[in-house]
Simulated assay, not measured.
Amino acid sequence: MKLIDIDKGRYRRHLNRVLIGCALVLAAGSLLVSQTLIALFPDPDGSHFHWNALGVLVTAAAIGLGLSKYRHHDYLTEVLYVWELKQSLNKITRKMRKLEAAAKEGDAGALLALQYSYAGSRQLWKLDDNTIIMDELNSRQAQLDKLVAQYDLTLNIDDYDEKILKRF
């Protein structure tokens, strides 16, 4: 996955609208489905937990299908990009110990994966206004830059491919 610049304002606006829309649809749809089922199949004991749970599950599945169907719509471009970036960074994070060990040995693939991870994390944290641990990221970036200079390498994050991670 390539890192691209996205408009922070548009991303935040669209993400908030999607989240609010999903919450409203979940609330209304769950009530509609569960109340319909309760009306069709009343329980003499008055316990309708299973119908309420089914209403939530059916509505959540409908929302998931709807988002899946429209995931490539222009309105969701930034939201989908950030979601995929988070998935990509999570894959790297799961291999972080092995990547850091290989990077100290001068493995170009590991160094590239770390460079991608740091650049992607920086972008993600800026989009989400999560700059609390940016100093730690800058420190790790400085360590990575020293390793890159030590092994006389040039890293281009556009060359990153997730397949690199299979070796670790």
Rank of each mutant, 00 (worst) to 15 (best):
Y11W: 12
Y11G: 05
R12E: 09
R13T: 13
L15C: 01
R17Q: 15
G21C: 05
L24E: 07
A28N: 07
L31C: 12
V33S: 02
S34V: 01
Q35Y: 14
T36M: 10
A39V: 05
L40N: 08
S47T: 12
F49N: 10
W51C: 03
N52E: 14
N52D: 14
A53C: 07
L54C: 11
V56R: 13
V56A: 14
L57S: 13
L57M: 11
I63E: 03
I63Q: 00
L65G: 12
L67G: 08
H73G: 05
D74W: 15
L76K: 07
T77R: 15
E78H: 02
V82L: 07
L85W: 06
L85D: 02
K86E: 11
Q87G: 11
K95A: 04
K95H: 10
K95I: 00
M96A: 11
M96Q: 12
L99E: 03
G106N: 03
G109C: 05
A110Q: 10
L114G: 00
Q115E: 15
S117Q: 15
W125T: 02
K126V: 02
D128P: 06
D129E: 08
D129H: 02
T131S: 00
T131V: 01
I133K: 08
D135G: 03
L137H: 02
Q141F: 06
Q141L: 09
Q141S: 09
Q141K: 08
A142G: 04
A142H: 11
D145S: 08
K146R: 12
K146W: 09
L147E: 03
L147G: 04
A149G: 09
Y151D: 06
Y151Q: 06
L153D: 04
T154M: 13
I157Q: 07
D159P: 02
E162C: 07
K163Q: 13
K163S: 14
